[in-house]
Computed example of a mutant assay.
Amino acid sequence: MDQDYRSDQESPGHQVSGPGIFLANSGVLPQYASVLPYDKYVKWYEGVHIPDWMGAKPGAITTAWRYQSADPASARPFLVGYKYPDVAATSAPEFVNVTLSDPSLPEGGPVTKFIDITASWGPHIETWRSGSTGDDRGPLLVTEEIDLGGNMTIDEFHAWYRESYIYQLSMLDGWRRTSRFDTTGSGNPRWLTLHEFEERAFAANTTKITTLLGDPEKYQAVTKSAKRIELGLWRLVRVYGDGTVPWGLPGDDNIL
Score class of each variant (00 low, 15 high):
S7I: 10
D8I: 12
P12G: 07
H14G: 05
S26P: 10
S26L: 14
G27M: 03
V28W: 00
P30D: 05
P30R: 06
A33P: 03
A33Q: 08
S34C: 05
L36M: 05
D39I: 15
K40L: 13
Y41M: 14
K43T: 12
W44L: 15
W53Q: 14
M54W: 03
G55T: 05
A56E: 04
K57V: 09
K57H: 10
G59W: 03
A64Y: 04
W65Y: 15
Y67I: 08
Y67N: 11
Q68P: 10
S69I: 06
S74N: 14
S74Y: 07
F78G: 09
T90N: 05
P93S: 14
E94F: 08
E94H: 05
S104Q: 12
G108N: 02
V111F: 00
T118K: 12
E126Y: 05
W128L: 09
R129P: 02
D136V: 12
R137F: 12
R137N: 14
P139I: 08
L140G: 01
L140V: 14
L141I: 09
I146N: 00
L148C: 00
L148A: 00
G150T: 11
N151K: 08
N151M: 04
T153W: 02
W160T: 00
R162L: 08
E163S: 11
E163V: 02
Q168S: 13
D173P: 14
D173I: 01
R176E: 14
T178L: 13
R180E: 03
F181K: 00
F181E: 02
G185M: 08
W191C: 03
L192W: 02
T193L: 02
T193Y: 00
F197W: 10
E198P: 00
E199C: 10
N205C: 11
K208F: 12
I209M: 10
I209C: 08
L212Y: 06
L213P: 05
G214I: 09
G214C: 11
Y219A: 01
I229Q: 04
G232W: 00
G232V: 00
G243V: 02
V245A: 14
P246K: 09
G248E: 02
G248F: 02
P250H: 07
D253P: 04
N254A: 13
